[in-house]
Structures are given as C-alpha cells and as structure tokens.
Design a protein around this nucleic acid. Structure first.
Length: 1142
RNA sequence: GCCCGGGUGGCGGAAUUGGUAGACGCAGCAGACUCAAAAUCUGCCAUUCGCAAGGAUGUGCUGGUUCGAUUCCAGUCCCGGGCACCA
C-alpha cells in the first residue's frame, strides 16, 4: 500500500465536511481561542502561492490549540466589495455580483484543496445585504456619535445637543470648525439647518467638502495610500486634487488612543512603528508673529478691519497689543510699578487666597499675582489656563467701577480669558468652596484651545499675524525668514505692491505644476518673496516672509519659521535665495549644511544663550505662553479618513438629504440594498453610478446619498460578525462577543498596516465607547506573514522630445515638445543609444533627444529567458506583440543579438527585480498545480519549511521533493508497500521514547512561537531517527501522528485511522511531554583550548569542577596543547562546555 | 533624508539565555540495488593546506567587551520594507 495522497486527501476532506468536523459552538466549557486570517478579496486571478502562507500558519496554530483543549474559532469569509470587480464589469459588462460569486467559488475550491479547518458555517461576505445591513448600522452609530475630548470617548449626539442647550459649545471645542463659538441661547436660536450643520462638524462619521484625490480615469476618489507618486496605484492613472462633498470618519479624534493602544497589543515593532508614523504625533509650539508695518501694504486692510487704530484712539481697548501678548513692553513697564505697590497693599482676602493658591499648588498650575494684562492688573492670573481671578473689594461696588468691570470682562473674554470673581466675604468665610470652584475652572477647558485667527483688533502694525507651528521653539533666535504655503490665506493681504507681480507669477507656477513634472522628481528650489516682514517677538528682528511649495498648506498652520542653520530644506532655500544665515549653534554649524542637532549649546540666542537646545525647548514654550504669543501644541499627521467612493460596488449609505441636510435613515430601513444597474459609468459631476438611477434616489422625502462606502468599511468589523453570523437583530450578540472577545491571533500581510488595521481599531474603540462590546482593541496578537517574492521584469520607456531651448541635461515641462504617441522601449542601460535625432515623417520635425519616462512592467513573464547570471532578455518579437496589445504605437528600440538555440535572435535586455508576488505584478504562481502533483500536506509543509513566516522569501519549487519524500518516509513507518499496516504493540525502548519526547518538546515550543520551519525540520529528524531504530511501535507512532496533525492533517487522519478504525485525530489530545525520558547521565563535552574546540570528552553530568579538571588534564589532546605548561584557568559550564585557558 | 527589518555554504535556512557555526532540506559528487531507468538505500559535501593525522581561515566590513561573540557594544557598507518637501 503506497502513500496515495490524492485518494487520502479527497476522502478525508469529504469526511470532515460531512461530519461538520470544523464547526464550533458559542457554548463551551473549554477555554476559547480566536484565530483569524485577514480575509481575501476574491479577485479573478484566484489564489497564488503567497496567500496560503498565512492561512497555513493560522491553520496549524488553530489545529494545535484545538488539540490542546481549546474551543477554537477559526472562520473565513470574503471581502467581496471592491474596485476590481467593478472595473471588470465596466470592461466586460458582467455584473460584479456575478463575477464576485464566481471568484468566491473558485477561491473556496482552492482553499478546500489545501485542507483548511475553517468553520465555513460562519462565512461572511461583505457584499451580502445581510452583512452590510450591519455595516450601515455601525456607520449610523458613528454618524450619531461625537468624541468627547474631556472623557476621551465617543458619546451620543443627543448628549451633545443636551450640552449645547445648557452651556453652548464652550466646553467642547468643535473639531470641524475650531472658530465656532456659541452659547446656549444662541444654539436655541439656530434653525434646524444650522444646528445640523454644526452637529455635522462634531459627528464621528461626517460629510464635508474636502480636497480629495480625484482620479478621472477610474472615476473615483482615492485614499492617500492608493496614490503612488501622484498616480493611481492601480492602473497608474493621473490623480488631481478636487473639492467634493465626501464622507469622512473622524479618526483623528482617536489619534491618541490609537497610539496608546499600541502599548497593549502584541504587534511587531515594525508594525507599531508604521502605525505611529502614520499617526505622526509631534510636540511643539504654535508661535504668532506680527507682520511689520509697511508703507506699501497691498491690498490695504479695510478700515473696519483696521478698527479705530487709524484714528489714533486713546481708548485702552484699541491700543491693546496683538495676539495673546498680555501687554506691550511699554505698558508693562507702566503698570508694573503700580502692580508692585498693589502687592504690598493687598487686602486680607487677597493674601489669604494667594497663600492657599500657593500652598495647594492647584493641579500644578502656576498662578501670578498682580500680573498686568493689557493695561489692567487682575488679582491673580493663571496664564497657562488663561484664567483670571478677581476678588471684589469695596471699590468694585461703585457704579462707575462696575461699568468698567463689565467692559473689561467683555474684552478679556473676547480674547479668550476667563474671569472668575469672588467677594471678600466668600474668601474669608468659605475658602474651601472658593478653592473648589477654582479647581473646577482649571480643569475645564473653557476658553482654551481656541487659538483662532486674530480678530482685526488684534492685528499688529502691519495688520496681520502669522501663526507658525514648530517642533523646535528653541531655535527661535535662528529664524532668518518665514515661509508660507502658497495657498496660505494671508499671502494676498501681506504681499507688497512691489512684489505683487512676482508672487502672482509664482502662484501661477505652482498651479501649473503638472503631475508629470512632479513625477519627474526634479526637486528644484522655488519660492517668492512677499515683500512683507514678520517681527520676531523676542528680539524685534524683522524677518522676510516668503512663499514656497515646500511648505504644505495642510500640515500644521501652513506656515513655518525657517531656521537655515538647523534645517536642511531651510538651509537650501536660504542659500538659493541668498538669505543671510544666523548661526545659533556655534561650532555645530559648519556653514556648509544645516545641523538638526538638539544637543548643541545655543549662541546668539538672548535669554537662552549657553543652554543645551534640548533643554531650551520647554523654557521657550513657557516664555511664549507667559507673554501670550504662543502655546504648546501637539500635531498629528494623520488626517480624517475619506469614507466615500464614487463607485457602484460598495455599501450604499443609509443617508437621505432633505433640503441639503443629511439625515440618517431609520434602523428599520436597513439594509439599504444596492440597486441593480446596467451601466457602471459615472454619474453627473463625477458622482458615482448610483446617481444615474433617478427612481432609486428619491426616498423618505428626500434624495439618497449616491456615494458608496470604501473597501475598509466591511473589513473594519468582520471579526465580530464571525462570532454570531446569523443574528438578524444585532450586529453581534453581546454574549457571543463577550465569550469570544479579542482575536487572539490575527495573521495577515503588512500591506494592511495603516489602512485596515487602523480603521478596524478605531471602529472597535467606537463600538466599545458606545457600550456594544467589552474590549477596545480588536487584535491581541498580530503576525505578519512575509511576502513570497518572485521576479518581475521591466523595460525602459523613453519618449522622444523636441527641445525648444538650450541643451539642458534636464529640462522642465515647458521646454520641450514630446513626440506624441510614439514610445521607445529601450534595453536596460542603453538609454543613450536611442535613434536620435528622429524625424517625424508627417511634419518633418526633428526630435533631438530621448526622455526617460519610466520602467515599464512586463505583465507576462513567460517569454523572458535567462541568458546568463542575472541577465534576462525578451525577444523583439514577443515584446512587439506585447506592445501592440497595449495599443501604443511601436517605434523601435535598441537591440542586442543573442544566440538562442543556434539561431541569432534580436533580444532586448530587461531589468529584473524581486517583488512581492501579486496579480497586478504579473508574477504569480498558482498553488493548484503543486497540490495536484504532490498533495495538500506536502504543499502545507513545504510552504512552512521555506523559512520563518514573517520573513519574505523567494518562491522556488526545487525543495518540494524533499518534503514530499519526508511524508512518504513517515508513511513507511506505518505501512509496508507489500505487507500493509506494520504498526505493532511492542513496548518502546528508552531510545525510542527519547526520540518521541524530544520531538514533542520541540514541536510544542516551535508551534507556540510560530517557528514552523524548524518544527518541520524536527519532524524530519524524528522520522529519520525512528527509521534508523526501525521503530513501528504504536506507543511511539500514535503520539507522533497527533503531533503532526496540525501540519499535515490528511495523512495524520489516515494513519490514525489505520491504527484505530474509528474516531478522528482532530479530537485527539496533544501528547504530554515527560522530561524523564530526556534526562541524560553523561555528556560528550566539547573541550576548547583558548576558546577553540580541540576535542570531545565524555563526562558524567554529575561531575563537579575538580573532577572534570582532572579528567580534562589527563586527556592526550589537552596535554599536547599544554605542551608541558600548566593551564592558567579552566572554565567549566556544567552541561555545556569546558574551556582550558593557557 | 528619517524609521524599522535583514546580511551565515552553490541555494532555502538552523543555532531559543554569550558556550561544539552550518541542524533539516535542496542541488552536487561517489556508491549499492537494477539489463536499464524510476523509486529506495549508503557515504561525502564551508573554504583552504595536507597522502593522512592534523592545522589555518570562516557568520557583510572595521574595531571593542569576554576565558569564549552569528549572538553584546561602537562605527561602517550593502539589501529589503515603510514614511516623507510633515516644519
């Protein structure tokens, strides 16, 4: 009886299916274990050998845990909404539902062939209305929620509305509109549309107009990670910025928790780092710079904006300083003396409260006493919290004084100060209550975090204030110029008449920058001077304000303070435009490049001179806050997640617009089923195909949202649905969710590091906040399978151009005319052998040079031949055929002659590159062929044997024979070709038991730590040794069969059956390790002389140092090396080694 | 540029805590069985000197710590991945 894997595997797969061997219940007394694979998108290409790598790993682990007595949830499903199916529909006219169904069928077949232990009764498909009903439902929960920053959790919109009615929004800054400020009365006065508009700015799922990556060719908006080098990742189509109404998830509100959550989960450091980078938290400061007065400011601020300043008003109110400076220096001086006197003459109540404030150190906040603010001296002030404390003495009760108090309060409040007033009596009689009120005021953030654009009144002499964000406030004295993003709103108003034309020219240039030019990666330094100057608030120095595209409008404040001696880009800019550079770091700056160190000693830096930069950062921020021109600020790089696609094949939004306002549909209206369409072309104005369905759009007294949700919608919560897939009342039963809880082991590729995983983590946190589940991290442990790599091949694409001017080696977009529709394919590295000048026969125009376009991927690797070590070529014939397919007119390319099969053929050399195996790269290998030829068990073990799961490795089928041989060898321990089963019941010897238990130990440890490749080796060693021992004993072989079940389930089940006739090895108990079989009495000690092994001596493991030394010194080899001398030292590590030092 | 990984025979890889580098498999070489092939089995297989015994070198490179380093430290080069005019 031979090892007939085809028959065996088919038999058991059928048997397992019929006996529902892999179905698990939610009711079990066993401990639970949840093993999950990242479910696949069922593409038309089917599985390739890279996919199963993770699936096999998780399958082994799931089976292992089952044998160890766990109730293991190991489900599988399909991420079946998505772009490729729709793209395919557009090309072929087949409905995505049909092609998706077919693809799933094929995937399922392929998965079944490999013998995975999925509980298919729990399968989910994101495109199934029964599933996406709940995706829509969760979306509505997000729509109905906002993030309470105080509580650091999501809450219901109704709670927010209640707060608004009571206290306005003062305690809850609006994340969508930081300037928004209203009180309860105002809220009540807003009409419905305005209220909804405001609520939208708070919702966790919200719609807004935003710049999105619009891809005309795909007719869709792409996520940032779907855009590579300015073109769409799929298809390489151009992408432009476009303002559109979009849905977003306010994931930025969760930035900090997503960051903190990483501490609790077991992800690889690389993965955590990637997520941290993506979130991009940075700490620094916002600093406000006044724009200096200029005689030629253009355009002039309107008289209203300038306020009464022009009238030379003497009113205190109109002479207050800009920004948050609590005072001008002159005013400060004038009031300071008065303040000093006040301090001396303080009232009893003031002294009492001051002492209490100082003693209690209220929440660690620093209070100042009699600190002048804008010509007025409050009793106490906490600058950090912008909180002013006033104790009203006798004279405050006079009518005139009260009037003044009111106007002053108004001014202070307008400028984000809060005033809390106490009476003398309150302080002297009930100090505790006063302090409690103070504590409360401090912990509230009312009036905080509203660093908004300055009101006209705040403006400096030039009328404008520029706010910059910097992570290096310590370099404030090294600021030599400012740079605004070209899109910055102040650009127009600060530009001088003189510079106007230059700035406009530059803005024109920025707009005209084509995608293609950005692609070319010509990083030249560009910019324009606005003519305006900003004033360094610390030393009054005037610094020029420039605009440049290297400053991004979307990050920070869209403006930077440039420190050329410390930042390389600033340095390059300064050099390019001849801006003098101030050195604040002494020797650390060599005059030739910037030095971004934080460890240099500061020079030329006023009050921080002599300090280490690192230490100066906090000091400068404190000072900024103290004088009110800036504040500590944390920034995140992460943006809110775009959540709508102008596509058909996705979840429709359960949203209806009435009068331009978005309303949620009722839960009873769910699911909003995706209607049938005949055509998949885009709707009007770039809307999705659903916009074409006039009938469908009308619903519930309004019009439906016609966008659909993106791919990550369904995958953000699928792990929950597996727990309770048939539930029609809830997305998941709370009891089931509590039982299964977090995914204990999640396996998938790194490519989902920042997309799927972050969104999924956010949804989980939101569902947790809203009380639907009991955990806020979805995945406890994440293992990233490495990629299976394969060769891809590229040719160079060259276009011919006619140069308008010069002999530039590098030329910009405007300087050449390309030869339309003629593309040269060029041998790798043969760029300069192009046939130029080239004459266009139609126009007679001469094209003088070639311009490298890109490396062009050859999607079909089958015609590529290896002509030498690392040298790959494709024949001219095949390349030509390929190019014709692409509809590009072929012009010509450089040829290298190669002799193949004694015939000279013209070949083009192609550039090889090792890449991840994927359909889009045209380098896939199909697993079906291997399974057919060697069987699923061989395939499983071979993929594991390739190397560590997490490492990427090239696909190579050469080694597969060895694994297959191993399984046959295993088979022959049980079955003789002629005699049939040969398992006997003889008692096992110590040697055999030792082999077995050694293997148990190794397999258990290796499986537990996902070291599957070494586990496979251990099986090989074990089988080799049992073979040498001619062991066919059930006592040994039965445990061995259980051990190998997770790795090779089919052969294990067959062998188990040969020994038992009934039952299944799937439910066996993992053999228990008995250390007693591993104990040795002696060891063949390696003996080194000066660290180099010279001989081995067998010594009892009981032997102690003196005894060992004696034995070692008596040894011939050791004697020879000692050469008559005595040893300096003998190192003896028990059970390990001996080292003799001479 | 920044942040992570990783460099070990002809190849994939092993060495779990600083203790015999190269387990296991592939490929290769020699042999057994066979008319022959397949399958199977046996032996050899880092480089180098040597008939051998034995020696020298050896985990990208340069140093260091240690009785002893693939393992720890410093520097450096290369490869892969991620991020990026991010202030």
């Amino acid at each position: 009886m031979e090892y007939n894997f085809r028959e065996i595997e088919k038999k058991w797969q059928q048997q397992w299916r019929e006996s529902h061997a892999y179905e698990v219940t939610n009711d079990s007394t066993k401990p639970k274990f949840y093993v999950l694979d990242m479910f696949p998108y069922p593409s038309g290409a089917g599985l390739h050998v890279g996919h199963p790598l993770g699936y096999i790993s998780s399958d082994i682990y799931a089976r292992f845990k089952r044998l160890k007595g766990y109730n293991v949830l190991h489900p599988m499903g399909f991420d079946s909404f998505g772009l490729p199916a729709e793209q395919y529909a557009i090309e072929t006219g087949q409905h995505p539902a049909v092609t998706t169904e077919n693809n799933i069928k094929r995937y399922r077949e392929q998965l079944d062939n490999i013998g995975f232990c999925y509980d298919w009764s729990r399968e989910v498909r994101t495109s199934d209305p029964k599933y996406y009903k709940w995706t829509q439902w969760i979306f509505l929960q997000l729509f109905d929620s906002w993030y309470n920053r105080k509580m650091q959790k999501a809450e219901r919109i109704a709670q927010l509305v209640a707060r608004f009615r009571q206290e306005g929004n003062a305690n809850h800054e609006c994340p969508g509109d930081k300037k928004l400020n209203f009180i309860a009365e105002e809220w009540k006065g807003f009409d419905e549309a305005r209220q909804q508009e405001i609520l939208m700015d708070y919702r966790l799922a919200f719609s807004a107009f935003g710049e999105v990556n619009w891809c005309e060719a795909l007719g869709t908006v792409l996520a940032n990670d779907e855009v590579v080098n300015g073109v769409s990742e799929r298809g390489g189509h151009p992408v432009v910025k476009k303002k559109m109404r979009q849905w977003y998830l306010r994931i930025t509100e969760y930035a900090d928790r997503l960051l903190q959550g990483l501490e609790q989960v077991d992800f690889s450091d690389a993965m955590k780092e990637m997520q941290r980078n993506w979130i991009g938290k940075s700490q620094g400061a916002e600093i406000r710079f006044k724009v200096a007065a200029g005689n030629d400011l253009t355009p002039n601020p309107s008289p209203k904006e300038r306020g009464t300043k022009e009238e030379n008003s003497t009113d205190v109110k109109d002479n207050i300083p800009p920004g948050y400076m609590t005072n001008t220096f002159e005013q400060w001086k004038a009031t300071a003396d008065f303040a000093k006197a006040n301090r001396k003459n303080s009232t009893e109540a003031e002294s009492l409260l001051w002492q209490e404030i100082r003693n209690r150190k209220l929440q660690g906040y620093k209070f100042r006493r009699q600190h002048p603010v804008a010509g007025y001296i409050p009793n106490f002030i906490c600058i950090e919290k912008r909180l002013i404390v006033e104790i009203d003495g006798g004279y405050h009760s006079e009518e005139e004084q009260q009037k003044f108090d009111v106007s002053r309060t108004k001014w202070l409040e307008e400028h984000d100060y809060r005033i809390i007033r106490f009476t003398n009596d309150e302080v002297t009689n009930n100090i505790e209550e006063v302090l409690q009120k103070l504590e409360k005021a401090l912990s509230s953030n009312e009036g905080l975090g509203k660093l908004t654009a300055p009101s006209p009144l705040e403006r400096g002499q030039g009328g404008e204030v520029i706010t910059v964000y910097t992570t290096r406030p310590d370099t404030i004295f090294g600021v030599d110029f400012m740079v605004l993003a070209p899109e910055h709103e102040l650009v127009a108003s600060i530009t001088t008449a003189e510079q106007k034309s230059e700035v406009e020219k530059y803005l024109e240039y920025v707009k005209s920058r084509s995608e293609r030019e950005r692609l070319a990666e010509v990083k030249s330094i560009t910019g324009a001077f606005t003519g305006a100057y900003a004033i360094n608030p610390f030393n009054g120095r005037e610094i020029p304000i420039w605009i440049s595209e290297y400053v991004l409008a979307g990050y920070g404040t869209g403006a930077i303070m440039a420190v050329p001696c410390g930042d390389q880009r600033d340095y390059a800019f300064a050099k390019h435009f001849n801006i003098p550079i101030t050195n604040i770091i002494g020797d650390a700056y060599n005059g030739e490049e910037a030095n971004a160190t934080k460890d240099a000693i500061l020079q030329n830096s006023d009050f921080i001179n002599g300090m280490v930069m690192r230490d100066a950062i906090d000091l400068v921020i404190d000072k900024l806050e103290e004088i009110g021109i800036g504040k500590r600020q944390i920034n995140y790089r992460m943006r809110d997640a775009g959540f709508s696609r102008q596509r058909y094949w996705g979840e429709p939004f359960p949203i209806v617009y009435k009068g331009g306002v978005a309303y949620a549909l009722e839960e009873t209206d769910l699911p909003v089923e995706l209607p049938y369409v005949d055509t998949y072309s885009a709707g009007p104005e770039g809307e999705g195909p659903l916009a074409n369905l006039a009938d469908w759009i009308i619903a519930s007294g309004g019009t439906r949202e016609t966008n659909t949700m993106p791919g990550y919608a369904g995958s953000s919560w699928y792990f929950l649905r597996y727990m309770d897939p048939y539930n029609e009342r809830e997305f998941v039963d709370r009891k089931a969710a509590d039982y299964w809880g977090q995914v204990d082991l999640y396996i998938g590729g790194t490519e989902h590091a920042v997309g799927h995983l972050l969104y999924s983590r956010m949804w989980t946190k939101a569902l947790y906040d809203l009380g639907y589940i009991s955990f806020d991290e979805p995945y406890k442990k994440l293992v990233n399978q490495g990629m299976i790599t394969a060769f891809s091949f590229f040719v160079e694409r060259i276009e011919l151009v006619d140069l308008l001017s010069g002999n530039a080696d590098f030329f910009s977009e405007s300087e050449y005319v390309p030869f339309e529709n003629k593309i040269f394919f060029c041998s790798f590295g043969e760029f300069d052998r192009l046939p130029v000048p080239y004459e266009d026969k139609q126009t007679g125009k001469l094209y003088e040079r070639g311009r490298f376009l890109n490396y062009h991927r050859l999607k079909d690797v089958s015609h590529i031949v290896e002509t030498g070590e690392g040298d790959y070529r494709i024949s001219k014939k095949n390349l030509e055929a390929y190019i014709k397919d692409k509809g590009v007119e072929f012009v010509g390319f450089e040829i290298t002659d190669v002799i193949v099969d004694e015939a000279v053929e013209e070949y083009v050399s192609v550039r090889p590159e090792i890449e991840k195996m994927s359909k889009s790269k045209g380098n896939v290998q199909n697993p079906d062929f291997i399974v057919e030829k060697y069987g699923a068990d061989t395939f499983r073990m071979y993929e594991m044997f390739l190397g560590p799961v997490e490492q990427s490795k090239p696909w190579d089928t050469k080694g597969i024979e060895g694994v297959h041989r191993f399984l046959r060898k295993l088979w022959r321990l049980f079955v003789d070709e002629v005699k049939g089963a040969i398992v006997n019941h003889d008692p096992a010897t110590d040697a055999e038991l030792k082999v077995l238990h050694k293997t148990i130990k190794k397999i258990e440890e290796d499986t537990e730590r996902f070291s599957f490749n070494t586990a496979v080796s251990a099986f090989m060693v074990c089988v080799n040794e049992l073979n040498d021992l001619k062991c066919h004993k059930k006592e040994i072989l039965e445990p061995l069969v259980i051990l190998i079940t997770p790795y090779a389930p089919h052969i294990a089940e067959e062998l188990w059956n040969i020994m038992h006739n009934d039952g299944s090895v799937l439910d066996a108990v993992f053999p228990k390790l008995d250390e007693k079989y591993l104990i040795e009495s002696a060891k063949e000690y390696p003996v080194s002389i000066n660290g180099k092994v010279r001989t081995n001596i067998n010594i009892s493991l009981d032997a102690a140092q003196p005894e060992v030394e004696q034995i070692v010194l008596a040894n011939d080899v050791v004697q020879k090396w000692l050469n008559g001398q005595g040893p300096k030292k003998i190192i003896f590590v028990k059970g390990r080694m001996i080292n003799v030092v001479i």
